[in-house]
Design a binder for these strands. Structure first.
Lengths: 151, 151
DNA sequence: CTTGACCTTGTACCAAGGTACAGGGTGTAG
DNA sequence: CTACACCCTGTACCTTGGTACAAGGTCAAG
């Protein structure tokens, strides 16, 4: 019922290295498991479940620090729905922000690619790159984010 | 015409620290500039333009490694429009992929927040969190990405 | 001549999330 | 009894993009 797994078995079960498990224990993400008489770690069902939770939430994009924070609340039994919701909502907002940034970047990059395309289709394919010149042009024109000293 | 700037002046012009300039030189992103008789770095117009290019492209989201790669092509005079286009297009694809992933994550997280919301509005606000139980439920059900050994 | 602002080099350090290795102990099969 | 696979601890190292510090050299002003 309460099967005990050794480090290597747990690692294999989750596709981790044993070193990663030691690491998680070292940083306090998982509690030190039970030991065999000879000192081998023995992970019980609760340990395995907790590790599963960690990996699941990690895959959702939370950092190990954030996960540790949630688990600390959980261990302290003060893990209210409100707290969880706050964390999740904050994370969703962060994701939205990140997505916005990347899309902005993407939309800045895409026209340069097209510019290359039209240039390639209308002249010799080994010449100067107009897209690059656009970029360097911008640089020479108003290069720096903060250009305080222009003599 | 070909004004020579010292490290601090270049740094100020671009809003960088002098240390960052040393760093860029150390990692081969910018070539070692001319020196004064006493050993001070003197950056010419070409150096400044190159640095501007670097910062511009960096702001577009390319890593210093990718920029170095492009500049190496440029230095070798084999910087064709085709090459630039390939790099940029690859970057756009990477961005698209990243955006997809983040949106997937977001869409997985958002319903959990809502679940918290409905739970909070219909019962005592200090109880167990159903969203968390959903997560742990998933964990105990099919926890690991690669679950090869199930006895 | 000294002070102060600037420049130089080398080195160590930061986050985050691990990976790698050295040097030893354990457990089981032949 | 000896391989060999596995486990342990401790420590150092990796990536990326820098920042911080120490110890010293240079240059112009007063």
């Amino acid at each position: 019922m309460n099967s005990l797994l050794r480090t290597g078995e747990v690692a294999q079960k989750f596709g981790l290295s044993t070193q990663t498990l030691y690491f998680y224990e070292r940083i306090g993400l998982i509690p030190p498991p039970q030991r065999s008489p000879s000192g081998y770690r023995l992970f019980g069902d609760r340990d395995v479940a907790r590790l599963g939770f960690i990996l699941r939430v990690k895959a959702l994009g939370l950092s190990l620090d954030e996960i540790r924070e949630i688990l600390a609340l959980y261990d302290g039994k003060s893990l209210t729905c409100q707290v969880i919701q706050d964390r999740l909502q904050q994370k969703v907002q962060e994701l939205d922000q990140k997505i916005q940034q990347l899309q902005g970047l993407r939309n800045e990059l895409a026209p340069l690619v097209e510019q290359c395309q039209t240039y390639l289709s209308q002249s010799s394919p080994s010449g100067e790159c107009s897209a690059l010149q656009d970029i360097t042009g911008v640089v020479n024109g108003n290069g720096s984010p903060q250009d305080a000293s222009m003599k």
